[in-house]
């Protein structure tokens, strides 16, 4: 498949997942601010911005500002609105490859963004974040239902999985930064949509150990860091299947992701918990390095050339 198209699909996967993940994180954050009258708003907001990799020069940070920076900032591909627009822009350049339904979904979402702002004013943030989750779920469903399981699919899944691992790591960082209370585990699990599954798995016992194990290592829950990294790994494996090497793995990206995955897998929960921050930043770094490796391996030379007259 065309390198340029592969790149677009990869980024559709990443941006859509980012929009959803960020919306989930913000929803929980806003909810937490409202629920807990004793929380230090300023501190919590700063911590969230830091974890999401956004810098601000404002001396005072309010929840409203956080939502506007991470949720509504059009120019930033890290915000919910920006990521949705970027996903649509990538889809626009790959329109003949994705199904009409996927394109219509992304395009209609993009067209709906202005109306979504009005929704915030009328119905509050929660309605907006709900809408974003719904649109992303719709996209995922349409992708699932209409896309052939060819290389294009693999690139899209690869992007989604890498972003998901990154998002989960960031989400856990907010917990570590907030001092790791039980209350914050609760909201964390909620924001992943994992609360009920978690309760069923551990029969209601919410402890640090269980929560960390679930979000980092669970094999069956798709948003755990382990599951997301494994999914990315299997995409990378399938991409090279035709020419797979006899020893080891074929690509740097695969090596990076594989190491990050085993690093989680073969450490005990206690060890992970005692060193949570550094574990999480290792996962984040692995995602970013894998991104570079994937770009170098599959998306090279897709920039236009400027010609000089000899």
């Amino acid at each position: 498949m065309l390198s340029r198209i592969a790149e677009s699909l990869y980024w559709i996967g990443r941006y859509a997942e980012r929009a959803e993940g960020t919306a989930r994180i913000l929803d929980v954050h806003v909810h937490g601010m409202l629920q807990d009258p004793w929380v230090d708003q300023e501190e919590a907001c700063r911590s969230l911005l830091k974890v999401m990799g956004v810098t601000t020069d404002a001396t005072q940070v309010s929840t409203l500002q956080v939502v506007s920076l991470l949720g509504l900032e059009q120019a930033s591909p890290s915000s919910v609105v920006g990521a949705l627009a970027a996903a649509r822009e990538n889809a626009r350049g790959a329109r003949e490859t994705i199904s009409t339904e996927m394109w219509e979904c992304l395009n209609a979402t993009w067209l709906g963004l202005p109306a979504a702002r009005i929704r915030i004013e009328q119905q509050g943030m929660h309605a907006f974040f709900g809408w974003v989750r719904e649109r992303c779920s719709l996209l995922n469903g349409l992708t699932e239902a209409t896309m052939s399981r060819d290389d294009g699919w693999l690139f899209l899944m690869l992007g989604r999985s890498i972003e998901r691992a990154d998002m989960t790591a960031r989400l856990l960082s907010t917990h570590a930064d907030a001092g790791g209370s039980i209350q914050s585990w609760l909201s964390l699990l909620r924001s992943c949509g994992a609360w009920e599954t978690f309760l069923r798995t551990y029969r209601g016992a919410l402890t640090d150990r269980h929560a960390a194990e679930f979000l980092l290592l669970d094999r069956l829950f798709p948003r755990s860091a382990f599951a997301a990294l494994s999914a990315a790994e299997s995409c990378l494996d399938e991409l090279e299947q035709a020419t797979g090497p006899r020893a080891g793995v074929a690509t740097d990206a695969h090596r990076i992701i594989g190491r990050a995955r085993t690093d989680l897998e073969f450490r005990g929960v206690d060890e992970l918990l005692s060193n949570l921050s550094s574990v999480l930043s290792t996962v984040e770094r692995a995602c970013s390095r894998a991104n570079t490796a994937i770009t170098g391996r599959y998306f090279r030379a897709t920039a236009a050339v400027t010609w000089a007259v000899a």
Binding site: V305, T306, W307, A308, V309, A310
Partner: peptide, 11 residues
């Protein structure tokens, strides 16, 4: 006699 285009630094 000779014309063309190239990508790279100036000659």
């Amino acid at each position: 006699p000779l014309k063309g285009v190239y990508s790279g630094p100036p000659s």
